[in-house]
């Protein structure tokens, strides 16, 4: 019995810590982009380092969670889905890290007039993922509240899509002074920010199905 309790407590703590890492990663990403747009490269590199640490810790936790679930036969009926959910959340923090790395390596030249568009896109895309966090936590404690919590994820994802499209339109139709390579690079960077909300939506779809199944 003591073995059950210890394993259970450890696993709950690890899942919570993993979700915390993703949550903090999103905050750091937002601040990192703002620092990049403000040309504060010291702050940007600090945020990049922080995201790197969070991603490594999330990877380790993911492996430990999956190992413990298998060896102690925890949640045998939901194990595959919980593992998938953790995978999807890990994809988000992986994408955060790779996006910030792209900014660091490619140093995109973002025109000051687009700063507000980029900040708005980052905030909306991150908000979609942030709204996923309480829903993911709720799956374990109050599964009947998951679906209502996920509504905001879908809302922010569609908003992020709109902002991304508008920004791309401005770049390609209004900013005649930029050459095509520059425009294509900006489009690529926009995609890197926007993808976070897409990943959040993918995880939300999975979580929504999981919530229905557990309530059946």
């Amino acid at each position: 019995m003591a073995v059950f309790t210890r394993t259970t407590k450890n696993l709950i703590l690890k899942i919570d810590e993993f979700i915390d890492n993703v949550d903090i990663g999103l905050l750091v990403f937002k601040e990192g982009i703002k620092a990049f747009l403000d040309k504060d490269m010291d702050a940007f590199h600090r945020h990049l380092q922080k995201v790197d640490l969070l991603e490594n810790s999330a990877d380790k936790l993911q492996r430990e969670i999956e190992n413990e679930m298998i060896t102690h036969s925890v949640l045998p009926q939901q194990r595959a889905e919980v593992s998938n959910l953790i995978d999807e959340l890990d994809e988000i923090i992986d994408s955060i890290k790779s996006s910030l790395n792209e900014f660091d390596i490619e140093m995109p030249d973002i025109p000051v007039s687009l700063n507000n568009n980029f900040i708005s896109l980052t905030e909306t895309s991150v908000s979609a993922a942030e709204e996923l966090i309480p829903a993911a936590r709720a799956y374990f404690k109050e599964p009947y509240t998951v679906r209502e919590k996920l509504l905001k994820v879908y809302y922010y994802e569609s908003e992020a899509d709109k902002i991304a499209s508008n920004t791309k339109k401005i770049i390609f139709q209004e900013m005649k002074e930029l050459d095509l390579a520059h425009k294509a690079h900006l489009r690529y960077i926009i995609h890197h920010v926007e993808v976070i909300s897409d990943l959040a939506q993918k995880a939300a779809d999975l979580l929504s199905g999981m919530a229905i199944k557990i309530l059946m």
Binding site: T7, T8, I12, I15, V74, L75, Y139, F140, P143, I214
Partner: peptide
């Protein structure tokens, strides 16, 4: 409102 893992245990 017990955690799913705790409930399973």
């Amino acid at each position: 409102k017990i955690h799913l893992i705790k409930f399973e245990s």
